[in-house]
């Protein structure tokens, strides 16, 4: 665990040592701030962060690949993956450390948006329900976690950060299209199966304030599956 935490801490610190980390955070906060001001802080409307969560979920599809693209690709490019692979750590510890570092960055990126919730609480009468806000944040963490797990897998498969970014983005966009648009065109039986794999539909449940354990299991199981695949891909490099 000590090694995993060391890898996670280094990863998190390196994101703040490089401009890309600050740029990603700045863009994310500007965009979510704009949606909050023009979409949620509207006089006469019910006090809710639902529009912010909706947009932020979509934003996560673009932001998470930018965070995860360098996780293992950069290690391979620098040659430091050789150092890690020859160290007394397992591939699983390396992947988990990298993922936890990226997750910590994501949480730090989300943290300033709590101010929006605070402003809404102060500015609204009646005050908004706390349940949907907490559920909304939980959904963002779960979606972010899933996108980062997919990005981690992509970055174990290529030394190119650009390819890792585009691969993750493309997969997420295809996933959204297949599970949200395709079901209306492929017949009711197959459409229903595809729709069940939609994560945006599950986000709507969270935004309504409904925390369904099936939705949590959905996100967690896919994220864990992707991380196991990443560790396996990293281990397979020893056999290539």
């Amino acid at each position: 665990m000590r090694s995993t935490l060391a890898i996670a801490t280094r990863e998190l610190a390196s994101m703040f040592r490089l401009p890309v980390g600050w740029v990603v955070i700045a863009l994310f906060l500007v965009l979510t701030g704009a949606v909050f001001v023009f979409g949620a802080l509207v006089p006469g409307q019910p006090a809710t962060l639902r529009p912010v969560f909706g947009t932020t979920t979509l934003l996560m599809v673009f932001v998470a690949p930018a965070v995860s693209m360098r996780l293992l690709s950069e290690e391979a490019r620098l040659g430091t993956l050789e150092l890690l692979s020859s160290s007394p750590v397992t591939s699983w510890q390396i992947v988990l450390g990298k993922y936890l570092g990226a997750m910590a960055f994501l949480l730090l990126m989300l943290a300033p948006t709590l101010l929006q919730a605070g402003v809404l609480m102060l500015a609204s009468d009646p005050r908004p329900d706390l349940g949907p806000i907490l559920a909304g944040y939980l959904s963002l963490i779960l979606v972010g976690g899933l996108c980062l797990a997919l990005g981690t897998l992509a970055s174990t498969l290529t030394e190119s950060q650009t390819l890792a970014f585009l691969g993750t983005l493309l997969t997420l966009v295809c996933w959204l299209l297949l599970t949200n648009v395709a079901p209306q065109h492929v017949g009711p039986k197959f459409g229903a199966i595809l729709a069940r794999a939609s994560f945006s539909a599950r986000i709507d449940d969270f935004a309504r304030g409904a925390i369904d354990s099936r939705n949590i299991v959905f996100f967690l199981s896919i994220s864990i599956g992707l991380l196991v695949a990443s560790a396996t891909a990293l281990e397979l490099r020893r056999w290539r």
């Binding site: 935490l5 280094r10 390196s14 040592r17 490089l18 050789e82």
Partner: peptide, 23 residues
């Protein structure tokens, strides 16, 4: 390793501290 890899954005002591936690 042949390429003597390290992390360019880290300080020498920071890099050694990081490696010491893994070793």
């Amino acid at each position: 390793p042949e390429s003597a890899p390290s992390y360019p954005e880290m300080s020498v002591r920071g890099f050694l501290r990081y490696r010491s936690k893994i070793l």
